[in-house]
Amino acid sequence: MNTLAALVQIAGVALAPLLPGSIQALKARLQGRRGPSAVQPYRTLRRLWHKSAVDPEGTSVIYWIAPPLVAACMLATLAIVPVGGHAGPFGLGHDALVLVGLLALARFALAAAAWDTGNGFSLMAAARELMISVFGEALLVLALLLAALPAHSTDLRAMSVAAASGHIWSAPAHWCGALAFMLVILLETGRQPIDNPDTHLELTMIHEGPLLEYGGRDLAFLQWAAGARHWVMLILGAELFLPHWGGFAASLGLLLAGVTFLCGSLALIETTQAKLRILRVPALLGVGCAIALAGAGMWVGGVGT
């Protein structure tokens, strides 16, 4: 089973760009447009792969190394996150908090690259992203705490198995965690109401901003990393918070259903919600933190368990 899980994880490297692509396609349908097809990200990657890169004047090794480093971080997270409660023997452990560290490393690399170019728009976006991540990281660890409570462990495989034991679905704490993690997904995948993936107006960008100076294969790495971030977050959301049961095959099937459901939810949220003012985003994430803390209190206090 672990070998099969490893194959799914490796397939994730290729499948990841499909997620943002299908969300965009679905969203276009919901909005009554035809829109680009779900495989558009692959076409973009192919196009970028054949283009030459750009080196802004005065940049150093940081600008040069950031795209491969960000992609390497995302590859490592793909190896850590289990599918269907199992994961391949990649030797990188399966700890939830290590995941937080890897995401932070990727964020730092991009912010440093933005400083290296000195581009005002990149730095504006990097400053915003790091500011929001202050609240986002608190929310992320609290959501992970809620998933770790029933498992008594931060091993993602154990957390996934614990979420499969039916009685947990009646615990309010679990759904508090699910709500908190949904906000994390919105944040990490850069979707409305926190960020707008469709905009290419420099003044409003958050996640896209630090990518502004990159071109060619560098940009291809970063675009893939954005897809991989969707993959990791949606898989985690489905594994830790959505109902799944049965054997490994059933779990994988339910995982697919869960990820599809989450893609649909993201498309729906993006269709119905406007983007928040950036300075309001911390309040939204703060509400998420309060819900998560309330959930932790209910779990320890034995409400509904």
Partner: peptide
Amino acid sequence: PGTGSFPSLALGLALAVLT
């Protein structure tokens, strides 16, 4: 115990090799 463990050496090497 109770964690997914942090194989720091493997992770550091993996990041270096992958990059």
